[in-house]
Nucleic acid binder design. Structure first.
Lengths: 190, 190
DNA sequence: GTCTATAATAGGATAGAC
DNA sequence: GTCTATCCTATTATAGAC
């Protein structure tokens, strides 16, 4: 990396910022270079396969961030409600209260999906699994997985709509509703 | 247009297909040309400002499609439940059962949002208003708007997740749940 | 209105000096 | 490891013939 200026982690974090704002197709090497303070050649030194390598690194980084900040805590100690509320807090923070778009959404759309299929799927999978585990602990066994999927959809959709409507409060409201709706008692079998 | 080959509407529809798949940043003029069967120069003849004009036309077209197929029917005759179920059917069809990405989502992400802010907001707004009207008819006055926003979020999020997980059944399930969840009796004021 | 040809530029990627 | 300089290709956009 730039000698002692930026750690690799810091560099990947800056790259993530660009991908988050502009997506794979919209993120030019010029921007990635500017955001990291590294010349194009330096970027290629660390990411020989170019943009693809950079975004792969971004997804690896994101995955490990989410694992320690979201997935693991969802299985950790505390009540299911407390763990879900912690997730909500973390997401609100991570997405700047709804101001920042979703890295995952941006990579699912555009032309990038085929390139990062596996990584994207793996991250969504882990998220859903961890949430389902928390919901199972809350006694929602039979509906836990469906509810977990629902939660992820809501978060993704809330980010889209908050940006589409230019109204971050939509994201905040969706997050605030999440715990109660996920933890509501399962409906009677008809 | 190509004399009698394609109507303007048909051309815009083909353009929409490309934008839907690849987004604004990922849609090249070469692809747009190929999809419409029009040479680049012909495209510029109809859309002098280039890609921006084309996507503006796509959004106009989408807006009028949605108006007649979704928004108007939501206010039309029939029970609120029937109208919402009709919307679900239409959306399922429009998004190919979850196989096709969302045009709106694709334009909200990437670098295109600032270019189409107003149109995007207008479409989301009309959608939410129409849905809220149906929910108000169902006696959900105080929560109608919030529920309508929720529904749009779910649809957008379901499309993202279905693509991120490579599993279209997620979209189908989300759609199927929608009517019941939107029409559930409003919770007691605590 | 549509085409071929071409301009102009931006994008991704590499070479080679330091 | 980083930079400057450069290459090549794709991309947007236009000119001008038909």
């Amino acid at each position: 990396m730039p000698a002692a200026l930026l750690s690799r982690e810091e560099v990947v974090d800056r790259l993530m910022g660009v991908v988050q704002r502009f997506g794979y197709d919209g993120a030019s090497l010029a921007q990635l270079s500017k955001a990291t303070g590294l010349g194009k050649s330096s970027l290629y030194h660390y990411f020989p396969a170019g943009k693809d390598d950079m975004v792969r690194a971004v997804l690896d980084h994101l995955e490990s961030q989410l694992r320690s900040a979201v997935f693991d805590p969802l299985r950790g100690p505390g009540s299911a409600r407390a763990r879900i509320e912690a997730m909500v807090e973390t997401l609100d923070d991570f997405y700047g209260g709804g101001k920042k778009p979703c890295v995952l959404g941006n990579l699912v759309l555009g032309t990038s999906r085929p390139r990062f299929r596996r990584q994207l799927r793996a991250i969504f999978d882990q998220w859903i699994d961890a949430l389902a585990a928390a919901l199972a602990d809350a006694g929602l066994g039979p509906v836990a997985r469906a509810r977990a999927e629902d939660a992820v959809m809501r978060v993704e959709g809330a980010l889209i709509l908050a940006h589409g409507m230019d109204d971050v409060t939509l994201f905040g409201r969706a997050l605030r509703q999440l715990p109660a709706e996920l933890l509501a008692p399962a409906p009677r079998r008809p």
